[in-house]
Design a protein around this nucleic acid. Structure first.
Lengths: 230, 230
DNA sequence: AAAAATTTTTAGACTCGTCTAAATTTTTAT
DNA sequence: ATAAAAATTTAGACGAGTCTAAAAATTTTT
């Protein structure tokens, strides 16, 4: 009854979709091929299980796989991965904007919603949300055609003193981190001006919204993306 | 990675949820216990598979099960079934009202959405929809407390000539039937007056919205629920 | 009330995705 | 350049959910 009978081509299991998505994310943040161990860590499984699955995904032509050499998405695999990421981020927008969830709460639910299989549903949801460009964390939403819009923001930890800009996104998505930002008032879209960088621990002092001054640890600063406007 | 690691109690698999829901529906429309064969037919599986699952559900105290004697939900099983049905119907309302899907399209997507596990999501969705009482087919939405509101409407095939009322629901949910109603203009909420019942084939002639006259086969009439107002 | 037909359950097998333990390959250190 | 360490893959097993074939129980027919 379950197993949800994968009908046509282009019908992949939750698990397969999750692996593709994870490979995409890992590939985006390192150079070169994605390793078995990094996948095992990300998916909270054992390397042996990953190895098995990689063999299957390679058979289905979704990844390029040379034993012991790591893995890379094929064009088809990337298309699928971006489809899943698109669904994930659109549902996150829905949960935040329409249902009123906090940006620290939406990820887990979107992990389930992203696997609902209906092209039409995604199209209608997109329209209902007003064709958003970014999810609640500032991550760009892949286009229906399967293209990931590129954004080039800087890490707050890497801009020079005096830089002024806007908080545009985060590199860390854990509820703990996001709640910390909420608490300190570093919301998406807020103006920041770097007033000082401490050489010792690379922490920075920023002024937010041309108002209060805030101490930001390097740990936080290197996970905050800013759009520096000069 | 998949399998979705069922964490606490009160965490059941898609399959288990589907069986409970199906048992609820079958129990509601017949007297007595639900049979293995009827479940096999409803869930599109074989009797052997159903038998297996019934043993498991009985172990988990979700059903009363005596071999060869059919099956009945326990209190806990019914609570769970109603939770799933509540989620299903709320998502149907969302799909129809907010995304603009037709009432003939929403069921299949809701079959997947109903398994998203988050109490908070259901609460927020309910509020977002304005606490609807009925789904797009006129079926009542179980309360958060796990109570199924009863409605007592009559089948159009069983009301006497001269009866005037409103179409309030359907007993058949197939896209084909619903599309047929769309085509003939027998929408939910429309006024009907029974002008004639043909004794030969039990077809009826109705006037809709005090306007045009329509011929309705018995096949259709016995799947239409009306709220007769006198 | 026995025989026949039907329904249900059991037995054994299969797929998917996972695991542990052992084997193999690659990388790092000496 | 070889030995040690680390990463990866293979082998074999398991649970969930399904299947087919066969056995057992129940119901219907005669």
């Amino acid at each position: 009854m379950n197993g949800l009978r994968l009908r046509s081509t282009d019908m992949y299991s939750f698990t397969e979709e999750n692996y593709l998505k994870t490979i995409y994310y890992l590939a985006a943040r390192q150079e070169g091929e994605v390793t078995t161990n990094s996948l095992a860590e990300m998916t909270a499984t054992k390397a042996a299980s990953v190895s098995d699955m990689l063999r299957k995904l390679a058979e289905k032509q979704l990844i390029h796989y040379r034993k012991y050499q790591g893995v890379r998405l094929t064009e088809e695999g990337e298309r699928l991965a971006l489809k899943v990421i698109r669904r994930h981020r659109l549902w996150e927008v829905f949960l935040a904007e329409k249902l009123g969830f906090g940006w620290d709460e939406v990820h887990e639910m979107a992990e389930e919603l992203e696997h609902i299989r209906s092209e039409e549903l995604v199209r209608k949801l997109d329209a209902f949300l007003g064709y958003p460009q970014f999810d609640p964390h500032g991550d760009p939403i892949p286009t229906p055609a399967g293209f990931m819009p590129s954004v080039e923001y800087s890490k707050l930890s890497e801009v020079p003193v005096g830089t002024e800009g806007r908080v545009m996104g985060v590199l860390e998505h854990s509820p703990e981190f996001l709640q910390h930002l909420d608490k300190t008032g570093l919301n998406l879209g807020c103006r920041v001006r770097v007033q000082e960088v401490n050489n010792f621990d690379k922490s920075v002092v920023v002024q937010i919204n041309r108002d209060k001054t805030l101490f930001v640890s390097n740990e936080v600063a290197r996970n905050l993306l800013v759009d520096s406007d000069h």
